[in-house]
């Protein structure tokens, strides 16, 4: 089964928005990628970005970004979103973090690819930097186990429910997280 971007988008909207918000639901991130969607080539003028709520998920142009679908999740939506992708035959690509020191946030990025289609899906979740904690995806994708363990090593993000978060690539007594932007141990 090869999923389509449209269907994926709809499924994610149903998952992420509490009430079905019709009409505004599918908002293009980039007008140039509309051909596939059949949206009129002359879209309505976009409102100023400050006032419009950023849609929780969007189709992005693969040519410039390298992935095709991008979704912002709350921590409790990660496992349902993972299941959704699992049902559609996606495979786990990687789990990693990005430390946004200035914003005081920790971003967890999940990459999924599809074994037989071009689709590449990115899930993101931002949590407060201190005591960052998200549920584990290793129940859905056992392959996430190692990626999450590595992310815990590097960023100190805790994955609740993870079977074993002991240091993986780092020495077994490591108590530091080198990819945090305020890490100075290696300097």
């Amino acid at each position: 089964m090869t999923p389509t971007l449209d269907e994926l988008n709809q499924a994610f909207l149903r998952l992420l928005t509490p009430a079905p918000a019709l009409g505004t639901a599918c908002e293009m991130h980039d007008a140039t990628s509309c051909e596939g969607k059949g949206v009129s080539p002359n879209p309505a003028p976009t409102p100023p970005p400050t006032s419009a709520p950023v849609p929780p998920c969007r189709i992005v142009e693969g040519k410039t970004k390298g992935y095709h679908f991008d979704a912002d999740l709350a921590p409790d939506q990660i496992v349902p979103a993972g299941r959704l992708l699992d049902e559609r035959g996606f495979a786990i690509d990687a789990v990693t973090g990005v430390d946004w020191l200035a914003a005081g946030q920790m971003e967890i990025v999940y990459d999924f690819y599809h074994p037989v289609s071009v689709l590449h899906v990115v899930l993101r979740c931002r949590v407060p930097r201190e005591g960052a904690e998200v549920p584990t995806l290793s129940e859905v994708f056992p392959g996430a186990n190692w990626h999450e363990r590595e992310t815990h090593d590097f960023f100190g993000i805790r994955f609740t429910g993870h079977p074993d978060l002991s240091p993986f690539l780092l020495p077994e007594d490591a108590d530091y997280h080198p990819l945090r932007k305020d890490f100075t141990g290696a300097a």
Binding site: Y113, V116, S117, F141, P142
Partner: peptide, 28 residues
């Protein structure tokens, strides 16, 4: 098998030896 590859993200000759024609040169 292909399902194991998918769940763990195994690629390359491993997934192609499981009957899935997954090659980035062709897929993307």
């Amino acid at each position: 098998d292909a399902e194991l590859c998918r769940k763990y993200g195994a690629t390359g000759p491993v997934i192609r030896g499981a009957g899935v024609a997954n090659d980035v040169r062709r897929v993307e």
